[in-house]
Simulated scan of single mutants.
Amino acid sequence: MSDLELIQPGTLVLCSTDIAAPPMTSVVDGVRLGFEPDLGRALANHLGLELQWVDVRRWADFVPTLTELRCDAILCNQAITPDRQKVVDFTIPYGRFNEGVVVRTDSPINSAADLVGRKVGAITGTTNIALAASFAGAEVIEFGASDDAFHEMADAAVDGTIDAFVDDEIVLPTLEATGTLRVAFIAPTRNPYGVAVRKESAALRTALNGAIQHLIADGTLLEIWHDNFPGKAFRL
């Protein structure tokens, strides 16, 4: 794999985050857990590479971390969108994910129609902000300046600063477990997630595509999915 032009020969450096968002990703006692960490380990293993993680906390910093050669690829909730494809390249999808709207447990909001005149939060630069903007009559409140916009947004919903917020469906059960928030409804957006690489990293993209295809074919990706998302249908 010496032709992959990795920033560290023999090592795949993946950009992720240490912000707790289980079961997608989290770091507990120094151990990285969740669907994407498991996928990252499987990809590196298939390619015969060591694995290293670089953590990013602000969403806007992911692409700069990649383009400034501080990682080889981004494996962290990256939906494949036309705007992002102008800046980076993506592998084939490793899963498709819906989005959800979260409210306080005592909120009367249960549908998009209930968001008229409401403040709806989402993180800047994500597909979530695009979905929030699609709700007619809602006022979009952007988050992303802090090192933990996800939990800042959840706190804002709890204290009433915002009425609702949008995030990826797969990370929402953890918020519901707090007892203060609930999922009002799910938007079936089925966003395809891929590994993002630099435009000039064609060889790495090809290698990662081959690895993902192998993990699909031998059932490893399905196993990783069910280990982390039991009861959720696997979508590609």
Rank of each mutant, 00 (worst) to 15 (best):
residue 3 D to C: 00
residue 4 L to K: 07
residue 8 Q to W: 01
residue 8 Q to P: 08
residue 11 T to E: 14
residue 15 C to E: 13
residue 15 C to A: 09
residue 17 T to E: 09
residue 18 D to S: 13
residue 22 P to S: 03
residue 22 P to N: 00
residue 24 M to G: 03
residue 31 V to I: 15
residue 33 L to F: 09
residue 34 G to L: 09
residue 35 F to Q: 00
residue 41 R to C: 09
residue 41 R to W: 14
residue 43 L to D: 07
residue 44 A to M: 07
residue 45 N to T: 14
residue 49 L to R: 06
residue 49 L to Y: 08
residue 55 D to M: 12
residue 55 D to K: 06
residue 56 V to H: 03
residue 57 R to C: 00
residue 58 R to Y: 06
residue 61 D to H: 10
residue 61 D to Y: 05
residue 62 F to K: 06
residue 63 V to D: 09
residue 64 P to A: 02
residue 68 E to C: 04
residue 69 L to Y: 14
residue 71 C to W: 08
residue 73 A to Q: 02
residue 75 L to S: 09
residue 76 C to I: 14
residue 80 I to F: 00
residue 82 P to N: 03
residue 83 D to R: 14
residue 84 R to S: 10
residue 86 K to E: 15
residue 90 F to M: 12
residue 91 T to A: 07
residue 93 P to C: 10
residue 94 Y to I: 15
residue 95 G to S: 06
residue 95 G to A: 06
residue 95 G to H: 01
residue 97 F to H: 13
residue 101 V to W: 04
residue 101 V to C: 08
residue 105 T to P: 00
residue 106 D to Q: 04
residue 107 S to F: 02
residue 108 P to K: 04
residue 108 P to I: 01
residue 109 I to M: 04
residue 109 I to H: 04
residue 112 A to N: 00
residue 113 A to R: 11
residue 116 V to S: 06
residue 118 R to T: 02
residue 120 V to M: 01
residue 121 G to W: 07
residue 128 N to Q: 12
residue 129 I to Y: 08
residue 132 A to E: 01
residue 132 A to V: 04
residue 133 A to M: 12
residue 136 A to Y: 07
residue 136 A to K: 09
residue 141 I to Y: 04
residue 141 I to A: 01
residue 141 I to D: 00
residue 142 E to Q: 15
residue 144 G to D: 04
residue 145 A to V: 12
residue 145 A to K: 14
residue 148 D to K: 05
residue 152 E to A: 10
residue 153 M to G: 05
residue 156 A to G: 08
residue 157 A to S: 05
residue 157 A to C: 13
residue 160 G to T: 02
residue 160 G to S: 03
residue 160 G to R: 02
residue 170 I to W: 10
residue 171 V to R: 06
residue 171 V to F: 07
residue 179 G to V: 02
residue 181 L to Y: 04
residue 189 T to E: 09
residue 195 V to Y: 05
residue 195 V to L: 08
residue 197 V to G: 03
residue 197 V to L: 12
residue 200 E to D: 15
residue 200 E to Y: 12
residue 201 S to F: 12
residue 202 A to C: 01
residue 204 L to T: 00
residue 207 A to T: 04
residue 209 N to H: 07
residue 212 I to Q: 05
residue 212 I to Y: 06
residue 214 H to M: 14
residue 215 L to T: 07
residue 225 W to Q: 08
residue 226 H to G: 00
residue 228 N to F: 03
residue 229 F to G: 06
residue 230 P to K: 06
residue 231 G to A: 02
residue 232 K to E: 13
residue 233 A to D: 11
residue 234 F to E: 01
residue 235 R to V: 14
residue 235 R to D: 12
